[in-house]
C-alpha cells in the first residue's frame, strides 16, 4: 500500500487539476484493465488492513486475547475482508 499510494495520489492530482484531468481519470478507471487491477489490488489490501486493524484495536482493549476467542476474531476478520474485497471487485469491475 505504501508504494501503491503513489498511483492513488497521481490519480487524485489528475482528477482535481482540470475537467480534462477528471475525465481522463474517470475514463481510465472505467476502461483500462490495468488501472482497474491496480485499484482493486490496493483497495483489497486497504480493506484487509482496515478490518485487521480494527481487530487489533479491539485486542488492545483486552478482548479476544485467549486462544479460542483470538482464533474466532481472526477467522471473522478474514471472512469480512473476503466479502468486502468481492464487493469492491463488483464496484470497480
Amino acid at each position: 500500500m505504501f508504494f501503491g499510494a503513489f498511483f492513488m495520489l497521481y490519480v487524485l492530482g489528475m482528477s482535481l487539476e482540470s475537467e480534462q484531468g477528471f475525465n481522463a481519470a474517470a475514463q481510465m478507471l472505467t476502461e483500462s484493465f490495468f488501472a482497474k487491477l491496480i485499484a482493486w489490488g490496493l483497495v483489497s489490501a486497504l480493506l484487509y488492513h482496515f478490518f485487521a486493524g480494527i481487530k487489533h484495536l479491539v485486542m488492545d482493549f483486552g478482548h479476544c486475547e485467549e486462544l479460542e476467542s483470538g482464533q474466532k476474531a481472526a477467522k471473522a476478520t478474514l471472512v469480512i475482508s473476503a466479502i468486502s474485497v468481492l464487493l469492491a471487485g463488483v464496484w470497480i469491475w
Binding site: F2, G13, L16, E17
Partner: peptide, 17 residues
C-alpha cells in the same frame, strides 16, 4: 524520502488546486 514526497505532493494537490 517517499513519505516526505507524499506529504509535499499531497499539500501541493490540496492547495495548488
Amino acid at each position: 524520502l517517499l513519505t516526505f514526497i507524499y506529504v509535499v505532493w499531497g499539500i501541493q494537490i490540496l492547495w495548488g488546486v
